[in-house]
Amino acid sequence: MTIEERSNIDIIQEKDNNIIGEPYETVYQKPGTLIDVDMHYCPGCYHSLVHKLLMEIIEEMDIQEQTIGVAPVGCSVFAYDYMDIDMQQAAHGRAAAVATGIKRLLPDKYVFTYQGDGDLAAIGIAETIHAINRGENILIVFINNAVYGMTSGQMAPTTLTGMQTTTSPAGRDTNIHGHPIKISELVAPLPGAFYVTRQAVNNANGVRRTKKALQNAFNYQRLKKGTCLVEIVGNCPSNWKMTPIECTGFVEEQMMKTFPVGDIKLPKAEDLKNLKEA
């Protein structure tokens, strides 16, 4: 096994007989708003994938100048090294409060938080629920991979029943550790919640739907009619001790059983009436 030093892509592509001879048109490229550095995420981690989607949206909507992100402690605490927008790093669990402070002072900017399940559903659940209850006009991007990733695999509030983690070595026992918390279903009834959806990115169509959901959420923020929560079923190859490909199966067969994917709360039609002008 030799080490390939070259990064020049053309040399490596084995064959490309452009039979037709027409010039190629670019269909997809890394968004410019995603900073061109190696991301520290483990191979196959959905964090970097969602970072990519967010930065695609910000580039396509051309709102790099209008957007402020908040990333609290968790694997994604380094998000500001990868997202070419103004960002604030927040204490563990406090992103929703920090975002409230920003949005209240900059009501016409897009503000989003990017939180893991430990951050949002455990230590930060009060801030999360109250920000939503106040209807803060922010987007909460919630990556639910059922473990604390950064600290290497402890049980989280969304750890599945029976799921082994470093702090539920015999599997999560609901009598001792309670049941996985379904945040989206929990907060959807709050009047302040404007748009709540759960998506997954374990296959191409899921990625398309997730991007559409995030796109909606950014647009809805202009309406100033409440909080958007986009829960994304994540993965954790390292701590689930699975290959990225095996993770896609685990997400499909296990995670989605407890965390069904789909829209949980959609804005009413009349609320979206003036979306164009907003």
Partner: peptide
């Protein structure tokens, strides 16, 4: 802007956000 938060933890973190902006 004046806002009553859900806790002192939340209020100081809101200050963090506003000050950071």
């Amino acid at each position: 802007v004046v806002l009553q938060a859900e806790s002192e933890v939340a209020s100081i973190n809101m200050v963090y956000g506003a000050a950071g902006a």
